[in-house]
């Protein structure tokens, strides 16, 4: 059973679209496997949507003193023009069945999570029982990967200078804190030190940043919706 979930603040930032693609994908993959988080996300989306579209009224009350100036600002786009332009086209969005994609590690095929379908994966690099394929998201100090551990393999004891997300896509692993299973969303920071080992092998999605940007990165994550509401 899944025991490790994203924090409420992370879910909030996810719904707001404030997280980098790497962490957003991590939460989307977790939510695909976790009904409880799925439910929370849809509830939060309702609330945030409502708050956003009521926002104008509140915003006006708080900040707008010179109403005429405000109207001028809005008028920099011609709404009628835009409406005419949009409705001139009769095209509608056409959908097709999603096709599963697979990735192979150690002669085993794994289904690629939907959230990663259009990300570019690097060729796997092997170090002992570990294979790692970088995901090319170009998010500066944040690196995302698929990490495969063969049975009996592990990651040497390490601490995290920034944050490290490990999302178990398949299999299980153990560390000093216990056993982790498919779907577990494990977010560690510099306070944690661990030495994960996978007795039966596993595939993980990992996201980590680096020490230099620790404060910035973490602050970003913990900063909830911020400017939207105030």
């Amino acid at each position: 059973m899944i025991k490790h979930h994203p924090t409420f603040e992370l879910l909030q930032s996810f719904v707001n679209g404030d997280l980098p693609a790497s962490l957003s994908a991590g939460i989307a993959i977790h939510a695909d496997m976790c009904q409880e988080c799925q439910r929370q996300i849809s509830q939060l989306t309702d609330q945030i949507a409502e708050a956003n579209f009521e926002f104008e009224a509140n915003f006006l009350d708080r900040f707008i003193i010179d109403e005429e100036k405000d109207l001028d600002e809005i008028a920099t786009i011609d709404f009628d023009d835009m409406i005419a332009g949009i409705t001139a086209s009769d095209e509608i969005e056409v959908l097709k069945e999603k096709e599963d994609k697979f990735i192979s590690f150690n002669d085993t095929n794994y289904k690629l999570p939907d959230a990663l379908h259009n990300m570019v994966l690097g060729k796997p690099a092997q170090i002992g029982k570990l294979s790692r394929s970088r995901i090319q998201l170009d998010e500066d100090e944040i690196h995302s990967s698929l990490l495969h551990i063969k049975p009996g393999g592990g990651v040497p004891e390490h601490t995290h200078k920034g944050f490290e997300l490990t999302l178990l896509l398949d299999g299980s692993f153990e560390d000093e804190q216990g056993t982790y299973v498919k779907g577990d969303f494990i977010m560690l920071n510099s306070e944690h030190q661990h030495h994960p080992v996978s007795e039966h092998g596993c595939l993980c999605y990992t996201v980590a940043n680096d020490a230099l940007h620790f404060t910035k990165g973490i602050n970003k994550l913990l900063n909830p919706i911020g400017s939207f509401i105030y």
Partner: peptide, 9 residues
């Protein structure tokens, strides 16, 4: 990046 990931996420 113009990878339009949002519809996958």
């Amino acid at each position: 990046k113009e990878d339009n990931l949002s519809d996958d996420i």
